[in-house]
Amino acid sequence: MTDLVLVLGWFGLFAPVAFGAIGSSIGCARAGSAAIGAMLDTETGYGRFIGASLMPSSQVIYGIVIMFSLQRDPMTAEAAAGVFGVGLLAGVALLYVGIRQGEVLASAIVAAKAKPEIFGISLAPAAVLEGFAVFALVFALVLSGTIPG
């Protein structure tokens, strides 16, 4: 039983990085595909399309920060349950935000291509999603301080 709890603890420890990386890669791939398409249709603004498409990459960085804050040496059964809960849910949040960010950024790139003056404001939904990921990060850090070990 203790072994299972420890396994879950390790799972929870790495979950923010793994799920964050998946979210970032899907988000960046979606937004990047839109940026590449937009570059076929425009003569300028390549840099900002590519720049915007990299926004979901922050999810994996947040995941790494959460992983370090949850790390316990050694991992104990008392700490493992808390690490599993916080790590898993933070990871799922980062995964979801990364995917959705990719979608709104792809839409923003398509819209900004037709109407360049809305480029800044079209990034607002992606920025709001980023805010939610920051909430997940901050409160994971706060809770990690209360996990024993």
């Binding site: 791939a29 595909s33 839109a34 398409g37 937009a38 076929l40 249709d41 792809a106 398509v110 037709a114």
Partner: peptide
């Protein structure tokens, strides 16, 4: 998420606004 979905994203983004 299939390859086709990324292809659609690139294709749609490459089409000018009508």
């Amino acid at each position: 998420m299939s390859d086709a979905s990324f292809r659609y994203i690139t294709l749609v983004a490459s089409l000018p606004y009508l």
